[in-house]
Design a protein around this nucleic acid. Structure first.
Length: 821
RNA sequence: GCGCUCGUGGCGAAAUUGGUAGACGCGCAAGCCUUAGGAGCUUGUAGGGCAACCUGUCCCGGUUCGAGUCCGGGCGAGCGCACCA
């Protein structure tokens, strides 16, 4: 008997052969200028670490590659480029660690990555490879900086910034995790330095609003919404008693104004000096110094609240009462107005502060705790006079105001508006929206990045480097190690930074900071299609043809860094008239993480898998298939090397059935039916990145072929080879050639499923009695209720549960029959 | 604390969106083939019961002829944000 035997094929030979053939034939090359149906498939480019490619990279790339190959088979001209995010602190730190120079080390790492990636069988057009550390790339990164500068979106200011004492550089807020450097884990300090910033804050509202229009993973969108942190509220003005000064506070709860019993300013608030009374001046000064020195972690940690009284009193515009003005470290200068009205009755932090400093309130402000903590909202089952053991944070429409004069009885929601309107008549209030998103600090006091293209001239001031003088080349300097001075190592090289002013020709000095790595990656997708052009950053026509990106796949760890910066830069370039769209990525999907033994793979945990050994032992195709079969692509999965044998067995069986397939007689209609169902299923799954179930469906079909216990007909296997092609491209090509085709399978088109052929001749109907499944009957797909009932009652195992006439019958055609007795 | 995503066999997971729970694969068990096999093939594999059957998708309620799926409440996990007023 001729059954389908698996035939172990030799992946090493097959994969080498096809990679060679693809290169010779230019199979993966796309006609950028002439594409009729362009489809831009983008994957997040890797940072070329010295350890080389790891499984997580390959998991991400494979998922994108499958989607790209599928679209190619559907007839699109697919452009799938890949490159290297080679600049940046991670590369530089590693070079420092092993005593190498990044300018020498990086090309080596890139070379190693390239070798590994080429083995993976990705459909990448390598002619468009880019490397952010090469001058023909960073030249245009500097150009992007200049465009933003031209538009007034880049500015320099002295600011409290996050300083990593280990990396010896400033970090963006997004690069600080829990008060520590995301790169090395060192506790971040606060420093005051002159820094370049981008006005991403000005774009907060657009960045937030546009999210609703994007087809992105929900996790990513919600992370961005969170990070942008919009909150609606009001700025309320409190006059300082007996002085011609006023303090603005930001609050989201203007309805609680009657409960505002003191004010708190950030210690560095500009008004502190002038309102502080002489008696309290020393205490205030001491407290300010202490806070400013403090690093940002303890400043923002949940330690016990501290603060001092300034001696000043402000007038609550609602009650007319005098309220004491304090400074405290729990109020942050960078948010809102840097000042708050404290409502201890209805805000946990204010409550805690009032309690912690109750004695001081008594001593200096002559205020007892009961006078400080006032209830102005009721509804938690307590009335207007009940005491508060903790802050009552009302937030519903059912809660009502109390102790609030004419607003008593009004709902919290209504009162928010009403109070603003009332105070606004005396210019004490205006509605305001605040965002947590702060401007993006792009300066880095490091070496391994693009020098910021700015020159300082005594006569002309800050002068942008003219575009025709780009790039400002990063010089090779042996002493690239950062120091504690707060300036870049480039600042030690007068021969480099001393330069003639581009404007007046006089003596001038280059900016010695380099830009953040995230600027490199915030526009790389614009560069790819134009990567072979050396006269423009990105060609106008090419860009409008290929962008926005049709499919972007990457890790969600970049949800608020890279993805937000990319959106901002694109929006800014749009406003500058450089690109015709605001949003760079039409569709983004976050892939899951590959974990091992319940932990994310990382070098420090020692659970990193090197894909090389698996590719060598099992073949790239098996490894790709295995990674995609672990679980839902967007969930990731736990890497256990055992499972790979199953997918390899599947490929062996496929190869065996293709090799033995004949064209004799007719294909089996039962097999063809299943085949067309699978074609449909795989297509649907590929469209939504459901790779695991697509593979399962193909395996199921393979089992059908095997159970037929005969050599397969060519028509039964040939479409399966096409379905497998996106997943296992090398073997699919080999099978395709074995089936007698000379052109690439990727130009063969995607099989079309035929609804008539896919239709079942009989269906199994579940028969329930009183909702419990009691059996199943085989009937024609269009069988009527009466026919199915008759069939069901013919089954003794079902009929025995039915006594008398059913009271009710629920019938779902082709699916289910439920008899209620 | 806030936001998001989840909770199904020994394990990774399916389930046409309210309609046969556990597809597919791993692992395991028995058998075949073999000098041998971490090879291949066949069969079985949610739990309980000799059986007819009973129980079963984190827990408690609800809606429904019917709930893994929908609603309310609770418990738990992962990720993100967090003294942001």
């Amino acid at each position: 008997m001729d059954t389908i035997e698996p035939v172990a094929y030799d992946p090493t030979a097959v994969e080498a052969k096809w990679q060679r053939t693809w290169a010779e034939r230019g199979t993966n090359q796309v006609d950028i200028a002439g594409a009729v149906r362009p489809f831009y498939s983008l994957m997040m480019f890797p940072y070329p670490s010295a350890e080389g490619l790891h499984v997580g990279n390959l998991f991400a790339f494979t998922g994108s590659d499958i989607s790209a190959r599928y679209h190619r088979l559907l007839g699109y001209n697919v452009f799938q480029p890949l490159g290297y995010d080679a600049f940046g602190i991670h590369s530089e730190n590693y070079a420092l660690k092993i005593g190498a120079h990044p300018m020498e080390l990086t090309p080596k790492n890139v070379g190693n990555f390239q070798r590994q990636l080429e083995r993976a069988g990705l459909m990448v057009d390598w002619r468009y490879k880019l490397d952010t550390s090469q001058r023909d790339y960073y030249r245009w990164t500097q150009w992007v900086f200049l465009q933003l500068h031209k538009q007034g979106l880049a500015y320099k200011k002295a600011a409290a910034v996050n300083w990593c004492p280990s990396c010896k550089t400033v970090l963006a807020n997004e690069q600080v995790e829990g008060g520590a450097c995301e790169r090395c884990g060192t506790i971040v300090e606060q420093r005051f330095l002159e820094q370049w910033f981008f006005r991403i804050g000005d774009y907060a509202e657009r960045l937030l609003r546009n999210l609703d229009t994007l087809d992105w993973s929900e996790v990513t969108k919600s992370a961005q919404r969170n990070w942008i942190g919009r909150s609606e509220g009001a700025e309320l003005t409190f006059r300082i008693a007996e002085r011609d000064e006023a303090v603005s506070v930001f609050t989201t709860r203007p309805d609680t104004i009657f409960g505002a019993t003191y004010l708190v300013l950030a210690p560095e608030h500009p008004l502190v000096d002038s309102i502080t009374t002489d008696a309290y001046r020393d205490g205030v000064r001491a407290y300010q110094e202490q806070t400013v020195k403090q690093d940002l972690v303890s400043r923002k940690s949940v330690a016990q609240k501290t603060g001092v009284f300034t001696g000043a009193l402000a007038v609550n515009p609602a009650t007319g009462n005098n309220v004491p003005v304090w400074i405290a470290d729990y109020v942050l200068m960078e948010y809102g107005t840097g000042a708050i009205m404290a409502v201890p009755g209805h805000d946990e932090r204010d409550f805690e502060f009032a309690h912690t400093l109750a004695t001081t309130f008594e001593q200096h402000c002559k205020l007892g705790i009961d006078a400080v903590i006032k209830r102005v909202v009721a509804g938690d089952g307590h009335d207007a006079d009940s005491t508060l053991d903790e802050a009552y944070v009302a937030n519903t429409n059912s809660d009502r105001l109390v102790n609030s004069a004419q607003f008593d009885g009004m709902s919290v929601g209504d009162a928010k508006q009403a109070v603003i309107a009332w105070l606004a008549s005396n210019e004490h209030a205006k509605p305001v929206v605040n965002y947590r998103l702060h401007d993006w600090c792009v300066s880095r006091q490091r070496y391994w990045g693009p020098p910021i293209p700015i020159v300082y001239c005594d006569a002309c001031g800050t002068v942008p480097v003219p575009e025709d003088q780009l790039p400002v080349e990063l010089p090779f300097i042996p002493d690239f190690k950062p120091d504690d001075s707060g300036v870049s190592p480039l600042a030690r090289h007068a021969e480099w930074y001393n330069v003639a002013c581009p404007s007046c020709g006089g003596e001038a000095r280059r900016e010695t900071d380099v830009s953040d790595t995230f600027l490199d990656s915030a526009w790389y997708f614009l560069r790819y299609p134009s990567a072979r052009r050396d006269d423009v950053a990105f060609d106008r026509e090419t860009t409008s043809r290929w962008l926005p990106v049709n499919s972007y796949i990457g890790g969600n760890e970049h949800a608020v860094l890279h993805l937000l910066y990319s959106r901002f830069v694109t929006m800014a370039l749009h406003d500058g008239g450089h690109v015709p769209f605001e949003e760079p990525f039409t569709r983004f999907r976050a892939h899951g993480l590959i974990i091992r033994d319940g932990a994310k793979m990382s070098k420090t945990k020692g659970n990193v898998i090197n894909p090389d050994e698996y590719v060598t032992e099992w073949g790239a195709d098996s490894f790709r298939l295995y990674l995609m079969f672990l679980g839902p692509y967007q969930d990731g999965g736990d890497f256990r090397s055992q499972g790979i044998s199953g997918v390899r067995r599947f490929l062996d069986r496929l190869w065996g059935s293709v090799r033995d397939a004949r064209r004799e007689g007719d294909a089996d209609p039962d097999v063809l039916r299943k085949l067309h169902q699978v074609i449909r299923k795989v297509g649907e799954d590929l469209a939504v990145l459901a790779y695991n179930t697509a593979i399962a469906a193909m395996m199921e079909y393979m089992n059908v072929l095997r159970r037929a216990e005969r050599v397969a007909h060519i028509d039964e296997v040939q479409p399966l080879v096409q379905l497998v092609a996106p997943f296992a491209p090398h073997l699919a090509e080999e099978c395709w050639a074995e089936l007698g085709h000379s052109a690439s399978i990727f130009d063969s088109g995607w099989p079309v499923w035929d609804a008539a052929l896919a239709e079942e001749t009989t269906v199994e109907i579940a028969v329930q009695v009183n909702g419990k499944t009691r059996g199943r009957v085989l009937v024609a797909p269009d069988a009527t209720q009466d026919e199915v009932v008759a069939a069901a009652m013919g089954e003794p195992s079902i009929a025995k549960f039915v006594t008398g006439e059913p009271k009710r019958i629920i019938f779902v055609k082709g699916r289910l029959l439920n008899l209620i007795v």
